[in-house]
Simulated assay, not measured.
Amino acid sequence: MLIIGGTRFIGRHAVEEFLDHDYTVTLFNRGNHDNPFTNRADVRHVQGDRGDDERLLAAKRDVEPDVVVDCVAYFPDEVRRATEIFADVDAYVYVSSGSSYAADDIPKREGVTRLCDCSPDEAVEDSAASYGPRKAEGDRMVFSAAERGVNAMAVRPTVVYGPYDYTERFDYWLHKVNEHDRVVVPGDGTNVWQRVYVEDVASALRIVAEEGEAGEAYNVGDRNALTLEDTVAEAASALDTTVEPVYASDRELATVDLSLTDFPMYRESPHILDTHKLAALGWESTPVREAMQRTVEEHLDSDRTGEDEGPGRQAEERLIGVLEMV
């Protein structure tokens, strides 16, 4: 099987998942990031840019994959071209996103909740604002390919956390909880932005490749969606420490030039994905406590702090001082 990407976060765990289930794995990527599988004889690496169709086609002819997992398709045209190149494989699985959904349904359901529209400009624009529309248009490329007879499917994770997360969004909270007795939590702590453990995304990719239906999309998210307040508490438990959350409204945050959305993992409206469709294929979610423990263990062994992903400690301490005077 061939994984496009495969060395950083979701792809790295996908490699391990497929290896654990007796697949022969080849990676296709530019080689710009450290390859954790360099010393693994059972993992091949073919170097190339996924935007170069000739290189991708050459890799296909060299590897002759039965399964292709596309971890780094960020533009709809990349998905379209990949589904054409790999039109005859047993399964092509596109890593989409829960950001594909335009509506705020609770929960968001495949085939029911409206997807983002994607304008021609958004389809080629590399920005955070166009991310959801681009992923949604990639989904539509999968649906179109399936209509042509390609066994193409999409997996839509919500916000992913776990070992080796280079985004450091979750490391921000782990570092704060581990280093300080009091941590500022935006709002009242009850906001819910469902997350998904990275190993569960990897298992979803394999299960969809084996059991999924062409032209279908499958949500993947923790079956137990924690509030931000509960997430901080679970992190403290896994770190074997205690922490006092200090809640702050947008108005209170503004006194130190902060806002609710400055904090990673904060979302004003709930974001929850229905995962029953994936579960019907045999997928299971790792219990949050177990997933948190594994995440914490790798975090402590890393040098990631996430400090650049949210408010600095000085701003937090100024805010705590302001709130104590109220």
Rank of each mutant, 00 (worst) to 15 (best):
L2M: 13
L2C: 05
I3W: 11
I3H: 04
G5E: 06
T7C: 11
T7K: 13
R12E: 11
H21G: 09
Y23V: 01
Y23F: 14
N29W: 02
N29T: 13
N32Q: 14
N35L: 02
P36W: 09
N39G: 15
A41P: 06
A41M: 10
A41T: 14
R44F: 06
H45F: 10
V46Q: 15
Q47L: 12
D49Y: 09
D49E: 13
D52V: 04
D53P: 00
L57W: 01
A59C: 03
K60D: 12
D62C: 06
V67K: 02
V67D: 03
V68H: 07
D70Y: 03
D70Q: 03
A73T: 07
A73S: 15
F75Q: 14
E78Y: 11
V79T: 15
T83Q: 09
F86M: 05
V89M: 01
Y94H: 13
S97P: 08
D104K: 10
D104P: 07
G111L: 03
V112I: 13
R114L: 10
R114H: 08
S119N: 03
S119L: 01
D121N: 00
V124F: 08
S127A: 12
S127Y: 02
Y131G: 07
G132D: 07
P133M: 03
K135T: 01
K135V: 04
G138T: 02
M141K: 14
A145M: 08
A152G: 11
R156M: 06
R156A: 00
P157Y: 01
T158C: 14
T158W: 02
T158Q: 03
G162C: 01
Y166L: 08
T167S: 15
T167Y: 02
R169M: 05
F170C: 10
V177Q: 12
N178W: 09
V183I: 05
D188I: 02
T190V: 01
V192D: 04
V198D: 04
A202C: 11
E210S: 05
E211D: 10
G212I: 03
G212F: 04
A217S: 15
Y218L: 06
R223A: 13
A225P: 14
T227D: 10
T227F: 06
L228W: 06
D230F: 01
A233D: 14
A236N: 07
A238L: 05
T241E: 05
E244K: 13
E244Y: 00
P245V: 00
P245W: 05
Y247Q: 04
S249Y: 08
D250N: 15
E252I: 01
L253G: 04
A254T: 05
T255N: 09
V256A: 09
V256W: 05
D257G: 04
L258Q: 08
S259G: 15
L260V: 07
F263E: 10
M265D: 12
E268I: 00
E268M: 10
A279P: 04
A279R: 12
A279T: 15
G282Q: 11
S285T: 14
P287H: 06
V288T: 14
R289E: 14
E290H: 06
R294M: 01
R304W: 06
G306H: 11
E307Y: 06
P311F: 03
Q314M: 01
Q314C: 00
E317M: 13
R318F: 02
G321P: 07
V322E: 13
V322F: 13
L323Y: 11
L323G: 10
E324T: 12
